[in-house]
Amino acid sequence: MGLLIGLTLLGLTSAWPNLAAGAAVAQALIAQVSPLAGVGLVLLLAVSLLVAWRPTPAVQRFGAAAFALSAVLTLPPLYQAFGRSGVTVGQDVTVHGQVAGNVIALGGNVILASDARVQGEVITLFGDVRRDPQARVTGRVNALLGHAPGDATARQTAPPSGLSLATASAFRPLLGWLGGAAWSRIFVVLTGGMLLLLFVTGAAPLLARRQRHAPLRTLALGVLALALLIGPALGLALAGLLVPALLACAFALLLVATGLSVSVYDAGRAAAYRLRLPAPDVVGAVLGLIAVALSLSLPPLALIGALVGGAWGIGTLLLTRSEGQGRV
Rank of each mutant, 00 (worst) to 15 (best):
Q156S: 06
G146N: 10
I186C: 08
S169N: 14
G108Q: 11
I123C: 05
T153C: 02
A158T: 15
P133F: 10
D115P: 06
V141L: 02
R130D: 15
Q134F: 03
F187I: 15
L163P: 03
R185V: 15
P160T: 05
A170I: 06
A143Y: 11
V188N: 04
D132F: 03
V188H: 01
S169P: 10
A181D: 13
R172D: 13
E121L: 03
Q119H: 12
L144W: 04
F171D: 12
A158C: 08
S161V: 13
S161C: 06
P173A: 03
R136F: 07
A182H: 14
G107K: 03
A152I: 04
G107W: 01
R172H: 09
G107L: 01
P173H: 02
R140G: 13
A116L: 06
A152W: 12
G176L: 12
A166S: 08
L163W: 05
L112V: 03
S184W: 13
L175S: 04
P160G: 03
L144R: 01
V141K: 03
T153I: 07
T138I: 11
G150D: 09
L112R: 09
P160L: 10
G176A: 12
A135G: 08
L165S: 09
G179A: 02
H147Y: 00
L178S: 05
R155A: 00
D151S: 01
F187L: 15
A113V: 08
L125K: 12
V137I: 13
V118R: 06
A158D: 14
G107T: 09
P149N: 10
R155P: 06
L163F: 04
A170R: 11
T124N: 00
V118M: 05
F126P: 06
H147P: 05
H147D: 11
F187V: 15
V188Y: 06
R172I: 15
A168H: 06
T153V: 11
G108M: 13
W183P: 00
F187Y: 12
G179I: 04
G176W: 05
N109G: 09
V118K: 03
A143F: 02
F126N: 14
G150M: 13
G176V: 13
L163C: 07
V122S: 07
D151V: 09
L174C: 02
G127H: 12
V110S: 02
A182F: 00
A154G: 01
Q119D: 13
S161M: 10
I123L: 15
G180K: 14
N109S: 12
A182R: 15
